[in-house]
């Protein structure tokens, strides 16, 4: 593959972008376009080998705006379509764009199984905790009490946490970033692209029309430093604008300790590649009011992707039986010959 130097503009489609002004989706698009040249560089990849597959929702319009191959499919099914594509075309870098309704309501099943199989696709779930495209109904990630046209007295449903679900689905790469945090998002996109197998990234994305300010309590620029926990592999989980607090486990449960009262050497060290997903799950389940909100890579472990295993079986079968020949095959085994002329 000939390497080619790309720039951001090489990934900007001619298509006019049609999200509402102020929508968080713009920021994600921009970071993805910005990081693509580096991804191509690292993976020695050409633009025509990149595909964005999406479901349905505001966020799923994304592929139209990327100057790559794209497929805007049907509601919830993008992970399955991407699976078929990736298995047949392991030479492609396949991205999945989905939303909290698309990926966690109608398409949950496919998401779970795509992650479980560790299909080599990179899934970006735009979580705005609302159904944008259908004009503002609550979604499976909406907080309890969310008032919408379909829940005028407030939603009475327990929300699901995307990362907890990804972890329960045995995902090998699980990360979170806020659309507004360009640096963290770019880092994660780059790592996701280079991960061997499924990468699942939750992107916190503000829908300023139907659920404005959903993440303000911890992601607004003014509080972000103080309210976020930036996960770093092999480091203690220290956070705060002044980096003066940390998370540790006590009797199996997380608690916040002040560094001036607690020796740093006794802090819990974060390990993204731990075989057991327990620590990652503890972090994904942290109450976002009482605790800082973890950002970055929660889990990154190595497991052979589905497509590689499938193709290994093909190689093994060919090695064992020889490459199949249709006409030899249908004429072998329990066959018999009828010769002419025959009978009376």
């Amino acid at each position: 593959m000939t390497s080619q130097k790309y720039e951001r503009k090489d990934f900007v489609a001619k298509e006019e972008v049609r999200w509402c002004p102020g929508c968080g989706d713009y920021a994600v698009l921009s970071q993805v376009q910005r990081v693509m040249p580096e991804i191509c560089d690292r993976l020695q990849l050409r633009r025509e080998n990149i595909v964005f597959v999406s479901g349905i929702g505001c966020s799923s319009r994304f592929p139209y705006y990327m100057n790559t191959y794209g497929f805007h499919t049907i509601h919830g099914r993008a992970p399955a379509i991407a699976t078929g594509l990736q298995l047949c075309r392991p030479d492609l870098l396949v991205w999945v764009i989905t939303g909290d309704g698309d990926g966690l309501s109608i398409g949950t099943n496919h998401l779970v199984h795509c992650l479980r199989r560790n299909v080599n696709v990179k899934i970006l779930l735009f979580n705005n905790r609302i159904y944008g495209l259908t004009k503002g109904q609550f979604s499976p990630t909406s907080e309890k009490g969310t008032r919408t046209k379909s829940s005028p007295m407030g939603s009475i449903e327990q929300p699901i946490k995307p990362l907890s679900m990804a972890l329960a689905s045995e995902a090998t790469f699980v990360a979170r970033a806020s659309a507004t945090d360009a640096k963290t998002l770019q880092d994660i996109l780059l790592r996701a692209a280079c991960h061997r197998g499924s990468a699942f990234v939750e992107i916190l994305q503000n829908c300023n029309v139907f659920n404005d300010g959903a993440f303000d309590s911890f992601a607004a620029t003014s509080v972000r430093q103080d309210r976020s926990l930036y996960l770093q592999h092999g480091r203690p989980m220290i956070f705060g604008a002044n980096r003066d607090r940390a998370i540790r486990l006590r009797a199996g449960f997380p608690e916040i300790v002040r560094l001036d009262e607690f020796p740093e050497k006794d802090l819990l060290v974060f390990n993204e590649s731990a075989a057991h997903p327990g620590l990652a799950y503890m972090l994904s389940e942290l109450d976002e009011q009482a605790f800082p909100v973890p950002m970055g890579v929660f889990r990154c472990v190595t497991r052979s992707p589905f497509g590689e295993l499938l193709d290994e079986q093909i190689e093994t079968a060919v090695a064992k039986r020889g490459a199949g020949n249709l006409f030899d095959y249908i004429n072998s085994g329990d066959t018999w010959r009828v010769t002419a002329p025959q009978g009376s």
Partner: peptide, 24 residues
Amino acid sequence: YRHFGVRTVQAEDEIAAIAMAIGA
């Protein structure tokens, strides 16, 4: 038929199955 290079997937449901076929 793996030795013919045929890829088969036991999908999670019939929707996924056709979705994979469309992807292919």
